[in-house]
Design a protein around this nucleic acid. Structure first.
Lengths: 227, 227, 227, 227
DNA sequence: AATGAATGAGGGTTCATTCAT
DNA sequence: GATGAATGAACCCTCATTCAT
């Protein structure tokens, strides 16, 4: 009984043991995002997780495995939740689009998870298998979600007809750009900090919806586009 | 006689000597873009340039210097030329914006130089000094050019007033995105090839100018934006 | 039980860990003395210490650091002990001088530490920082000790007054010479082995004290010297 | 005729060509003495001699050959001349000894040739063949000359009988020491410059002849020595 | 003979990975 | 399981040497 109390009250070892992989993944995420795959040393990952080098390799057979695990771990399948939000959203599609960008920033863009995308893009070529996984788990569901939003707008007559597949990239690009910028120049070149993500996204929504043209000229130029 | 003069002017060794740095930079560009900075072995750069390891270091003191040279080489001051084009452009600003995107794709986006930007973004954190150089030599002139285009549009009443600094990113983002995408997933995930850069840019110009909204709704929604 | 305690206190790994730096320094001392700084390969140092190349760099960050450590290790502050001996010495100063030379040979000259001085003199120009260290930690205390001996002799009327600073070198020179000789020609030219260090030092003490001249002529020639 | 005048007056090419090996040896001597064998780079030798790297190897097949040539070249057989001086010297042997030390300094010690001895001692172990050559060409004749001087003193009753072979080293040591010191600490540690070679040698002669002891005590202590 | 571009073996150093404790 | 000392393959870079010109 008493033994049980102790083991329940103070199972630091036990709990640590179970938490280990998570702590290692967290440390690795930070470091990979901070310095890139190659420049991250396994010893430092271990140290930051508070364990020894040997322990790291107890949980992840190789650095490559660790990297893959970090990416997989941090690509939470949020799409179920988001699809639900999409289906229950009641406002206009322009509002939905604006909402999507803002929510994305809150939930992904400003979190360390954004670093993963940047990382994934930097290393895609060296980890094609991982890139394929990412494609399947993130890119495709993401595209699908954006496609549904855009289609909703078209269906409801809020958006003009469009080349859907490329329009998806029009919505995606500001997000990708923001993650890339934040985790590259944004992290080291002072003047690059001029970019305020929230204002940028707000304005981006505006432009996506209405463009840069002043209202009176908007009609005329349209005819030129191939779209 | 004349033949002799020519053959004297270009003995093989000399010609190689002058060509070497260029050949090495070309090989290095390819490999850096292909595999990233760390994963590129200097010996392979040399081999791809058709020389021995030692020769590489005859022209570039360290791998880091080689990297810097590759970056510098591939961002040659195109801005002078572009500024001139800007000043002599006679059409409307929407046309100018569309033209700028198309030309950028022709001259940079689809060339290996685009890989450099991707590379630079991946390695900025590891080479802060180089990032500062890039910021100064590429980012700032680029921003300035975009700023002048947008300002021209505003001044001529073609564009509505805007938060200029963030609007610059609105124009920049599609280009950055395209380079990042092309040199990451675009290079290894088959389905990602759905993105046709030229159509994307064309459509992007269209959206930048007029947005996604159908003409009749365009006016109403505008009021919401903070911009 | 007691046996267990002992075996617990000294597990093999731990013992090695503590012994490693010493083993590496010993191996490095041998090799540096044997072949000089540049000609000594770090891998060979490691091999001679019975470890792999990587292990060497676990304990000494660079070859230069290893060299410095070897030099520092082998000039341990013997001067405290020697100064004490000096202060408690009860015989005449000529006896003291003879004793100093003999003791120096026993404790330094005939040990591998002598090779360090030879090495240091060969490499001083290439490691000015280390040379300064050596100057401060070895040369100056050594000079000071010799100075005190000579001054004692002068003060007690045993030695004639002298140009002290140069006289120091008169005492030092036989020792430096002996180390240099032993670790150069003495190590490879057979006939150079004619030099018996102990007899040489004994005779050197004799000469330092009384010169080469036969007693009756000693007085006359003295007048010429500048000293 | 005129042709001859020209070729005589301005045979720069011709004269250079013949002088080449000498210029290379001079440059090599300087650099070897300055930085040691290993730290001297063949390209720098060539540059200092005003020729290209290739030319150096035209005259000396390997760096090792160059080194050997430098040593051989700079070990002028001065002993014939010195033996003559010895034979025609008319003063006392103490005067001769003093004269020998002073002359040695003038003709060798203070010239770059002294650097050779220092170099030879540093590298003896790595170039045993060269050390043997040095032993034969310099050490043995040098010993022989010193031996003759000392023997002359003994024969004429100016010096007391002595252990001749070790006494030779007593005369040699100050010279060896001076060369070693000058080309090691003397070249980089400021305080080591306290040593004034000429005063040192003068005093050394004095000590060699009469020792450090004050005249009245000289007689007593003598009995102890083994010599 | 002279040049200097080119070579490539070899050395110092790093770091992912192993394994005895 | 956990540790951290040990390993050694692999990398960047140097520089004596070669050789086409």
């Amino acid at each position: 009984m008493i033994g049980k109390i102790f083991s329940n009250n103070c199972p630091r070892r036990e709990r640590r043991k179970e938490a280990r992989p998570g702590e290692l993944l967290a440390a690795a995420l930070e470091l990979f995002v901070e310095k890139g795959y190659a420049a991250t040393r396994s010893e430092e990952v271990a140290r930051r997780a508070g364990v020894s080098k040997g322990t790291l390799f107890l949980y992840f057979a190789t650095k490559e495995e660790l990297f893959k695990a970090v990416v997989r771990e941090n690509i939470a399948g949020r799409f179920a939740e988001w699809n639900t939000e999409f289906e229950t959203f009641e406002g206009s599609t322009p509002e939905m689009l604006r909402y999507a960008l803002v929510m994305w920033w809150e939930r992904i863009g400003k979190t360390p998870a954004a670093g993963i995308t940047k990382l994934m893009m930097s290393e895609a070529v060296n980890f094609p298998e991982l890139a394929a996984f990412y494609q399947q788990e993130v890119i495709e569901p993401g595209h699908e979600l954006i496609r549904r939003i855009l289609q909703r707008g078209v269906d409801r007559g809020e958006f003009r007809p469009m080349d859907m597949e490329h329009a998806i990239f029009a919505v995606l690009a500001p997000m990708i750009f923001l993650m890339s910028w934040k985790h590259s120049f944004g992290a080291c070149v002072s003047s690059a900090t001029l970019l305020d993500p929230e204002r940028y996204l707000e304005q981006q929504a505006q432009i996506l919806l209405h463009g840069l043209c002043s209202p009176d000229t908007a009609g005329k130029a349209t005819s030129q586009g191939k779209t």
